[in-house]
Design a protein around this nucleic acid. Structure first.
Length: 414
RNA sequence: GCGGGUGUAGCUCAGCUGGUUAGAGCACUAGAUUGUGGAUCUAGGGGUCGUGGGUUCAAAUCCCAUCACUCGCCCCA
């Protein structure tokens, strides 16, 4: 514990930023609700197996990014690095396969042991949706449309590009994989060190390498589209058609691949150019193989996850917190009376700040700093007449108001 | 895990090639203003110069290590 700093890659979220996060979460939750998605939450840790079995042994998440530890009972536990595996596990352990289709929304912290960077943390937050039990391309369309709606409501759709690709079904993907390996093997020694490694573990990854030399080699690599079989092509065509119907703009990107093993068919990413290298803001795809791989009855799935920190960095029009009304006793003897009034107003739904100490001037200063919209000044003179002074802190106008109608009068400020 | 940059007050930073008690603006506290905030003026509090070691008569300043942050690679939301 060095100097009471938070653990690397974790941080405190102060009120202003938490407000931004909450706005994003609530927007996503509301939009998802309109599509019929209801909120769930799964534990933030699971048996390590849950992630190992589903994410694939070759993914970086499993090989180097998991927060794994043994608990006191000797079980191997992992803090969740993403949300989908937990939802799939929930489907199986809850016996929910008979209630398909299911539509879930979730939000919460995720954990990855990575080197922190802009827009990347060891504890970060995602919000996401999962659509289970819909093998039709209409599911992909709905999921992408929902993602676009969320970005739109956040005012961020214009700052992003939707990139779209298909990984085809399992057969198509395997045959493409073989063609790629054959192709890249001829250039093996010319590939970057990273890509030589990828050739063993995850050849599709070479396609989006940022190395110049790699890109030259990739330029002539076989195209995915040539390996797609009839079913895969048809599926993808239906997805793009649906997006066209909804006028959702996309850019086909045959180099877009996914790090996680369970994806098939549709893969998509909403990317921004405003966050430097961590530009992916909302991404997902279809994962029909996941539930089966985990040991449940094979169930179709599509979904996405969005990074809340990243969205928060982009979002501009965050609604401000409710502005309080300050109650200010003019003399110490009126503290109790003021407290009663404050309590009464709070019970009626008003947001009330009660300065704790100091003379009137001091309390007004404090009210101003709290961005109070008005103050109710409780003074002996008015009180004799059963009234208080209400001051509008934006305009400076003030007037005497009978205590009986105080609450009604204050409604103009909420 | 790998490479580059940065670390001085709560915040933004100044402090030249080492030289006495380390500075500014903003913020904070108090007063001018014993029934009126946002402006102004005055006074005040606050810093182991990230941490540890080294060089030196002398280190915020030079060297090494370490930690944190940051940008990029890997990977990803």
């Amino acid at each position: 514990m060095a100097n009471l700093q938070p653990v690397r890659g974790t941080r405190d979220i102060h009120p202003d930023e938490r407000q931004r996060h909450r706005f994003i979460e609530e927007t996503a939750r509301n939009v998802a609700a309109r599509y019929g998605y209801t909120e769930i939450s799964t534990p933030i840790f699971e048996f390590s197996e849950v992630f190992k079995r589903t994410l694939g042994d070759t993914s970086d998440i499993v090989t180097k990014e998991m927060y794994t530890f043994e608990d006191k009972g000797g079980d191997e536990i992992t803090l969740r690095p993403e949300g989908t595996a937990g939802v799939a596990r929930m489907l199986i352990s809850g016996g929910l396969a008979q209630d398909l289709p299911l539509k879930y929304f979730y939000r919460g912290p995720m954990f990855r042991y990575e080197r922190p960077q802009k827009g990347r943390f060891r504890q970060f937050h995602q919000t996401g949706i999962e659509l289970l039990g819909v093998p039709e391309p209409l599911g992909d369309v709905e999921v992408i449309a929902l993602g676009a709606s969320v970005l739109n409501e956040l005012g961020l759709l214009s700052k992003t590009t939707l990139e779209l690709n298909t990984l085809g079904n399992a057969e198509s993907r395997n045959s493409y994989r073989e063609k790629l390996i054959a192709y890249f093997n001829d250039f093996r020694s010319d590939l970057s060190e990273d890509s030589q490694d990828r050739l063993e573990r995850n050849p599709l990854r070479i396609l989006d390498s940022k190395d110049k030399q790699d890109q030259n080699i990739v330029a002539n690599a076989p195209e995915f589209s040539e390996s797609l079989d009839g079913e895969s092509k048809e599926f993808f065509a239906a997805v793009t058609e649906g997006l066209d119907v909804l006028s959702i703009a996309y850019r086909l990107n045959s180099r877009l691949v996914r790090g996680l093993d369970y994806y098939c068919h549709t893969a998509f990413e909403f990317t921004t150019w405003e966050l430097g290298t961590q530009g992916t803001v909302l991404a997902g795809g279809r994962y029909d193989g996941l539930v089966g791989q985990m040991g449940g009855t094979s169930t179709a799935g599509v979904g996405w996850a969005a990074g809340i920190e990243r969205l928060a960095m982009l979002a501009e029009d965050i609604p401000e917190e409710v502005r309080p009304i300050a109650i200010i006793p003019v003399v110490p003897e009126l503290q109790d009376k003021s407290l009663e009034i404050a309590q009464d107003l709070r019970s009626r739904g008003f947001t009330i700040e009660f300065g704790y100490r100091g003379n009137m001037s001091r309390r007004l200063k404090r009210a101003n700093k709290l961005n109070a919209i008005a103050s109710v000044i409780i003074g002996p003179d008015e009180l004799e007449r059963g009234a208080a002074t209400v001051r509008n802190l934006d305009s400076g106008d003030q007037q005497e108001v009978s205590l009986e109608v105080l609450a009604d009068h204050l409604k103009q400020f909420s």
